[in-house]
Nucleic acid binder design. Sequence first.
DNA 1: GTCTATAGCCAGATAGAC
DNA 2: GTCTATCTGGCTATAGAC
Lengths: 197, 197
Amino acid sequence: MTTEEKIFNAARVVFQKKGFSGARMQEIADEAGINKAMLHYCFKSKELLFKAIFMNAFGQLAPQINEIFNSQDTVFEKIKKFTHSYISFVMLNPYLPQFIIQEMNNNPDFVMSFMNFENRPNPSILIAQIEKEIAEGIIQPIPPKQLLLNVFSMTVFPFAAQMMMKGMLQISDIEFNIMMEERKTLIAAQIINAIKT
Amino acid sequence: MTTEEKIFNAARVVFQKKGFSGARMQEIADEAGINKAMLHYCFKSKELLFKAIFMNAFGQLAPQINEIFNSQDTVFEKIKKFTHSYISFVMLNPYLPQFIIQEMNNNPDFVMSFMNFENRPNPSILIAQIEKEIAEGIIQPIPPKQLLLNVFSMTVFPFAAQMMMKGMLQISDIEFNIMMEERKTLIAAQIINAIKT
DNA sequence: GTCTATAGCCAGATAGAC
DNA sequence: GTCTATCTGGCTATAGAC
């Protein structure tokens, strides 16, 4: 593993846990097992390092989502595939959703300044398809954007609000993982059950 | 309005928007229209000011939730009441959910050190009730904690991930508010439709 | 490339006048 | 109680040896 990779991995851990303003360059250096000066040698500044981490994180998620949204499947199939593959992926990167949500909220201008809008998740095809399937009587009437919001909510929220939900529902890390494993199929079943004709 | 109140309101705005580490005492002072020294005169330190804000925020939410969770209503009635009243309340404080989630994730130890555990949302009665109604055949079988997670997800997520969802679904602030208004009844209908026998 | 040492700045906190 | 001015510590960033 190159030094740059060590820094990158360390920075991902620290930024995703503490956020941009909470992260310390010293902590990233310690996590990487190198000196603080190397961070600046490799990535020039905290902002540029953060930018690299954020774009990488976002870049991993967006294409997966678009691939599923824009495939030839039915809406129900898409919901099943999305929830399953999103949960599988995020279980390996549990801090990712909260990280992205947090930085977009805390500093929208900064994030927007380097967001890649070409690759952003684009649900317009799926929205049209939902409208079509409603017209065909396959799906019960519902505003398409509300349906998408439901799918994202059920899938992403448990990871974004992990600490809070673990505390409120009194569940351990292990139980949490079991529940998320179960949600890979449970969510889609619930959503489809709610809107099927 | 007393100076203390002016500070408190200003601090709430800044902390909820930027988080603990992103917030600046100077910015809070400016927002309050007073001097930075007054902050320390009134609240001693940034941490204590934050603590006051966080506990107030959490203290507003928890009792409402418990009241609904522990009433004499049926599960379906509770879901309807919770989603409706939670959304109504949070529409007046749109930064609140993300604020609480973020700080619990970024600095669990700090937050836990002053969290009021007596008043925390406690779903144990509701969980027992769900099990009972499943046994009675009123609700389709589902792990109670998964059902609760679904209710919270559908209700809280749109506010927590506001920026991201506005960007992805291409909705304006006004459209967002219309959608949230609609969700006051839509969510409960969806959830109940998915689990009713 | 990798380190040590340090510059320079900024934010939280305080002293002290009024 | 409210201000101005200032201290102090910590953090980003850089200079410079090796």
